[in-house]
């Protein structure tokens, strides 16, 4: 493994690093989108309920 990193760490690191970054970022963004959407929907539900 040390030899792999020493010889080709740059290429392997940037390839695997980008894969890890994108594949971890996607669920994080989705969680954040869902959280803000749920907050919006709760507010909407409160307004609808108050109107009634």
């Amino acid at each position: 493994m040390d030899r792999i990193i020493a010889e080709y760490g740059f290429y392997i690191g940037w390839s695997y690093g980008m894969a890890a970054f994108l594949m971890l970022l996607e669920p994080v963004i989705l969680n954040s989108q869902r959280k803000s959407l749920l907050q919006r929907l709760r507010r909407l539900a409160r307004v609808n309920s108050a109107d009634q």
Binding site: R3, E7, Y8, Y11, I12
Partner: peptide, 13 residues
């Protein structure tokens, strides 16, 4: 050499 190991994400992606 070792850099062929990029294959394990390149091809599936």
């Amino acid at each position: 050499k070792q850099y062929y190991r990029i294959i394990f994400i390149h091809v599936p992606a």
